[in-house]
Amino acid sequence: MALVTLEHVTKSYPAADRRAEPVTAVDDVSLEIGAGDVFGIIGYSGAGKSTLVRLVNALEPATSGSIRIDGREITGLAERELRGIRLGIGMIFQQFNLFDAKTVRGNVAYPLKVAGWRAADIRARVDELLDFVGLADKAGARPDQLSGGQKQRVGIARALATRPRILLADEATSALDPETTHEVLTLLKRVNEEQGVTIIVITHEMDVIQTIATKVAVMDRGRVIEHGDVFDVFSGPRHPSSQRFVGTVIKGVPSPAELAVLRERHEGRIVTFSFRDGDASQAQVFIDLAAAGLEFELVYGGINDIRGRAFGHLTLAIRGADAAIDRALETVARHADVTEAR
């Protein structure tokens, strides 16, 4: 059974004034997030992903639809009951949202106090958490004495304090430089793998998804337009918006502009071969082309690795008799997807 289930969830805000239309931030979204997943939700700003994640811990009530956490329906629950639900869901933020007036220890201890833990237990748990995120020496420091990466690590320790089963990460690395981003993502991966915490990652950066997510949903104007295994979405994005996101991290089929440049520089027919899973089919393509006596060169593309599974798109310029090329492409089509640029 899924840990988080959304069914036809919609969130709309009333119109700002009489002339304006009501704003639908989340539009009829249905998703299932399994225990142990790192579920990425990607979209441009304004796509509704931040609102969607706030529906999961009921910081905002859904307008309609059903949201179940571990089988329990949370829509329509009273605020007091929702507080109990929120204790089981941690959240980290783009701007970290640490309490500036409290020390690092005070920040991490806060949710434990809310949960009613005993002082001695809080102390031990905070030590354990700071150790886990590598900030044991910063317990007495104040947030303004920390770097961005350290602040987010405190945020993660604080979010995990009450041992929640779910962690919501709202653009958690968007305010960080690439190296620090990597550090924080590695930590989140450990949280998922070592503590079995299900993580929902909101981002507009595809490489965040590529680095840690196992499942991904692409959002556009409030709707989920495509979702599935990260490998499937990356290796064969169907929706134009998904293709654009995938294109930011992966060299796939050349765009028309890129194609024009390629044609200028290379003679012959420009053909893209797409591979999934394994290198055997890739080798076979080259063997087939060589056996047909064709001359070819690699002009564009790359091979990618997502969680240990490889896929790629290689664009070749092929020269030779047209009939021979056609015959060779027919043979190759048995091992790889063939797209010829016209």
């Binding site: 204790l87 869901i89 933020f93 640490l98 949710p111 919501l168």
Partner: peptide, 13 residues
Amino acid sequence: PGVIEAARSMGAG
């Protein structure tokens, strides 16, 4: 507001 949201997300009233 983000700080208040963080506290809400931890179940504080």
